[in-house]
Design a protein around this nucleic acid. Structure first.
Length: 284
DNA sequence: GTACGCACCTACATGCCGTA
DNA sequence: TACGGCATGTAGGTGCGTAC
């Protein structure tokens, strides 16, 4: 599997409103990333059709950043990830009309079968999922690279990275504080200071450090109250990419700014999703 | 060598309060 | 209304002994 394979195609509606609020209850970062991986895996094997997906639990575990290390906890994490998916089955997915008078509710996953001994699992998505995220995915979607998403740890960062990728092509855009509050907290009563300190700033710092985009924002005020935010999205390498680039060109940190960053180095490296770092390919 | 269970630690999420 | 400090509960990550 190559770096380019770690992509996710999201419907605009998911990117706009976020996968977590859409479920009616917030999923943990691990649950969100696991679910996104399953959606990506399913879409890569049966584009636009959401029915069933087969994969190895160890593959999912490694894709989420867990590796077999000296601490012998891989089997722990394997079961934990399976439990996380099982919990996703318990959390209903809810889509409401504008006024909230009409809604439809179902679960993401209908059935999961796991065989840890033979390292296999089988997931059946809810049969109604295809009506909302099936063929529509092929018409308009946002590309999110899972290798970047999976480096993020907080729920806010996991929500915001796909959100910013959705708008990356626009360069800059405005977004209302109330919409952003619902996106990140699910509670529009949450005040802006709480949103900024506990969600927005830590998430943007993580995104700027670990992903392929850089986000900056300014506050737009109506009188004293912050009413909306103007976000600017730039393409910029993450820290692991920058470190490998420096290693490849044998640059010191002070010399990086004088160079124009390129991705020539990537041919000499392989990205290890489990370890979440680049490994130099051996010359044969 | 690997799976499992347990304990511990860290980071995150949340709420409350005081100050400007 | 914005900002920051502090306390507390929880989720996730890590280390290690034991059993198979």
């Amino acid at each position: 599997m190559t770096n380019e394979d770690y992509k996710l195609f999201e419907a605009n509606t998911i990117a706009k409103y976020g996968i977590m609020p859409l479920t009616g209850c917030f999923l943990s970062p691990i649950a969100t990333k696991a679910l996104l991986y399953l959606i990506w895996k399913c879409n890569s094997e049966t584009p636009g059709v959401f029915d069933t997906v087969k994969l190895r639990p160890s593959e999912l575990c490694e894709a989420l950043g867990y590796t077999k290390d000296k601490n012998r906890n891989f089997s722990h994490n394997l079961k934990k990830v399976c439990d996380v998916i099982q919990n996703v089955m318990l959390q209903p997915f809810k889509i409401c009309s504008e006024d909230g008078d009409k809604y439809i509710s179902f679960t993401w996953i209908q059935t999961m079968a796991v065989d840890l001994k033979n390292d296999s699992m089988w997931i059946r998505f809810n049969t109604d999922l295809g009506m909302y995220f099936g063929s529509e995915l092929q018409k308009s979607f946002t590309v999110v690279k899972l290798k970047y998403l999976n480096r993020l740890k907080t729920s806010a960062a996991v929500i915001l990275y796909p959100f910013f990728c959705r708008y990356a092509g626009m360069g800059s855009f405005n977004y209302g504080v109330e919409d952003l509050t619902i996106l990140l907290t699910g509670d529009k009563q949450c005040d802006y200071k709480h949103l900024k300190r506990n969600y927005l700033l830590p998430a943007i710092e993580a995104i700027n450090t670990w992903t392929d985009i850089r986000v900056e924002f300014i506050e737009n005020k109506k009188e004293r109250r912050v009413s909306s935010l103007s976000f600017s999205i730039y393409s910029e390498p993450g820290l692991p990419e920058l470190e490998s680039y420096m290693e490849f060109h044998q640059l010191k940190p002070s010399e990086v700014s004088a160079m124009n960053y390129d991705e020539d180095w990537m041919g000499a490296y392989r990205y290890n999703m489990a370890k979440q770092k680049y490994e130099l390919l051996s010359v044969s």
